[in-house]
C-alpha cells in the first residue's frame, strides 16, 4: 500500500511539484528587483506577448518543440519591449498606457493567428498558454523510490524540469555576480552612476533575465503562475523585512511553499471535500500566493510605509 502510494507520488506528483517550485523561484528572484523598481507589471506584459511569439514560432517551424517556442516567446518579448519604448518616445505616451496598448494588441494578434492557422492537430491553444498543464508533466519511468538514484529512469523526467533547472541556475548566477550593481542601481541610481555602474545596462539585463525566467516557466506552467510569481512572493517578502538579502530569501520561501501547497491543494484538496476531480494546479498556486500576500498585508511586521510619521507637517 505504502509502496503503491510512493510510486503514484513519484510518477504523478513529484515532477509537477519540482517544476512548479523551480518556475516559482525562477520568477520570484528577478521579481524582487522589479518590485523595488516599480516595474512589477513587466512580468504581466511579457506573459501576454508570449502567445503570439509561440504561435509565430509554430507557424515558422511547424513543430511544437520547446526551443523554437522559447525563442519565439523571447523574440516577442523583445519586440514588445521595443514597441513600448517606441510608442512612449514617438507619441510621448505615458508608460502604463503604452504597455497596455502593446500587450493587448499583441495578445489579440496571437489569438487571431491561432484561430486562422490550422493548429488542430497539435496541442497549442489559448487555454494552454494561460494555465499551462502542470498536471500532465508526469514521470512514467518511476517504479519506486529507487528510481531517484537510477540514471536511466531520471532521464525520463519531463524535459521542462531540466530546462527550468538550467534557467534557474543562470538567474541565480546572474544575481550573484551582479548583486552589488543590481542593489545599488535599484536603490540609488544617481549614486550608482557616480560610482561608475552602467545603470541602463543593469536595468536591461534585469529585464532580459526576467524574460528568460518568464519564457521558461511559461512553457511549463502557463502565464498565470508567471505573473503571480513575479509579483506575489516578492511583495509578500517586502512586507516582512527591510533588508534586501532577507527579502530575497523570504520570497524564495514563499514561492516554494505556494508552489507545493498549491499543487497539493489542487490535487488532493477536492478529495477532502468528497470530489474525485482535481482542480487547476496553476490557478491554485496563484491563489495560495495571493492568500500569503493577503496575510502579510494584514499581519506582516513591515507592512506600513516608513518615514511618513517623521515627515515635516
Amino acid at each position: 500500500m505504502d509502496a503503491d502510494w510512493g510510486v503514484e507520488f513519484l510518477q504523478l506528483s513529484l515532477a509537477p511539484i519540482l517544476i512548479g517550485t523551480l518556475a516559482a523561484i525562477a520568477c520570484a528572484l528577478p521579481g524582487n528587483f522589479l518590485l523595488l523598481r516599480r516595474q512589477a507589471l513587466i512580468g504581466d506584459a511579457i506573459s501576454h506577448v508570449a502567445l503570439p511569439g509561440i504561435v509565430v514560432a509554430f507557424l515558422v517551424t511547424g513543430t511544437i518543440a520547446a526551443w523554437p517556442m522559447m525563442v519565439g516567446a523571447a523574440g516577442a518579448a523583445v519586440v514588445a519591449v521595443g514597441l513600448i519604448e517606441l510608442i512612449k518616445r514617438l507619441g510621448k505616451v505615458e508608460p502604463g498606457a503604452a504597455m497596455g496598448v502593446v500587450f493587448t494588441t499583441l495578445f489579440a494578434a496571437g489569438v487571431l493567428l491561432l484561430e486562422q492557422s490550422d493548429t488542430s492537430g497539435v496541442h497549442i491553444d489559448v487555454e494552454h498558454a494561460l494555465y499551462g498543464n502542470l498536471e500532465s508533466l508526469i514521470w512514467f519511468d518511476a517504479t519506486g523510490w529507487s528510481s531517484l538514484l537510477d540514471i536511466g529512469a531520471l532521464a525520463g523526467l519531463p524535459p521542462q524540469l531540466f530546462r527550468l533547472a538550467i534557467v534557474l541556475a543562470v538567474i541565480v548566477g546572474f544575481m550573484a555576480a551582479f548583486w552589488k550593481e543590481l542593489a545599488i542601481s535599484t536603490f540609488d541610481p544617481g549614486f550608482a552612476q557616480a560610482v561608475g555602474i552602467r545603470t541602463g545596462a543593469v536595468g536591461f539585463a534585469l529585464v532580459v533575465a526576467a524574460a528568460i525566467a518568464a519564457v521558461a516557466a511559461f512553457d511549463a506552467v502557463g502565464s498565470i503562475i508567471v505573473i503571480a510569481m513575479f509579483v506575489c512572493p516578492p511583495a509578500t517578502a517586502r512586507l516582512m523585512t527591510d533588508r534586501l538579502g532577507r527579502q530575497v530569501a523570504w520570497s524564495v520561501l514563499f514561492a516554494t511553499t505556494a508552489a507545493i501547497a498549491g499543487y497539493v491543494f489542487a490535487g488532493y484538496g477536492p478529495l477532502w471535500f468528497g470530489s474525485p476531480y482535481a482542480v487547476s494546479a496553476a490557478g491554485m498556486i496563484a491563489t495560495v500566493s495571493g492568500v500569503q500576500l493577503g496575510l502579510a498585508c494584514l499581519l506582516g511586521p513591515r507592512r506600513r510605509r516608513t518615514g511618513q510619521a517623521a515627515a515635516p507637517q
Binding site: L35, R38, Q39, A40, L41, G43, D44, L130, Y131, I224, I225, I227, A228, F230, V231, C232, P234, A235, R238, L239, A266, P270, Y277, A278, V279, S280, A282, G283, M284, I285, A286, T287, S289, G290, L293, C297, G300, R302, R303, R304, R305, T306
Partner: peptide, 28 residues
C-alpha cells in the same frame, strides 16, 4: 493605501490571484 507596496505590485497581485482563483473555479 494601507501597505508600503506600490500600485504596480497591487495591480499585478490582484490580477494574477483573482485570475488564478477564477481558473480554479472554472475547473470546479
Amino acid at each position: 493605501a494601507r501597505t508600503r507596496l506600490g500600485e504596480d505590485a497591487a495591480i499585478g497581485a490582484i490580477l494574477s490571484v483573482f485570475f488564478g482563483l477564477g481558473i480554479v473555479l472554472l475547473t470546479v
